[in-house]
Simulated assay, not measured.
Amino acid sequence: MPRTSRAEQADATRARIRDAALAAFAERGFHGTSTREIATACGLSPAALYVHYASKEQVLHEISLAGHREVLGRVRESVAGHDDARQRLRALVSAYVAFHAERATLARVINYELAALAEDHRLEVEAVRRDIDEVLRAGLAPFTAVDTRTAAVALESLGIDIARWYRPGGRWTPQTLAASYVDLAVRMVGA
Rank of each mutant, 00 (worst) to 15 (best):
A104K: 04
A104Q: 07
L106P: 04
A107C: 06
V109E: 00
I110T: 03
N111F: 08
Y112F: 14
E113D: 09
E113Q: 15
E113S: 08
L114T: 08
L114M: 11
L114E: 07
A115F: 14
A116F: 02
L117T: 05
L117R: 02
A118P: 02
A118E: 12
A118G: 08
A118Y: 03
A118R: 09
E119K: 07
E119F: 06
D120E: 10
H121L: 00
H121Q: 12
R122Q: 07
R122M: 08
L123P: 00
L123W: 08
L123Y: 05
E124K: 13
E124S: 14
E124R: 15
E124G: 09
A127R: 13
A127G: 09
A127S: 10
V128Y: 13
V128H: 10
R129T: 10
R129N: 11
R130I: 11
D131P: 07
I132L: 12
I132R: 14
I132S: 11
D133M: 15
D133G: 14
D133W: 15
V135F: 05
V135L: 06
V135I: 06
L136T: 09
R137D: 10
R137Q: 13
A138E: 13
G139M: 03
L140T: 03
L140W: 04
L140S: 02
L140Y: 05
P142Q: 00
P142W: 02
P142M: 00
F143P: 04
F143K: 01
A145C: 07
A145I: 00
A145N: 05
V146G: 05
V146I: 11
D147Y: 06
D147C: 09
R149A: 15
R149T: 15
R149H: 14
A151H: 02
V153I: 12
V153L: 14
A154D: 06
A154R: 07
L155V: 12
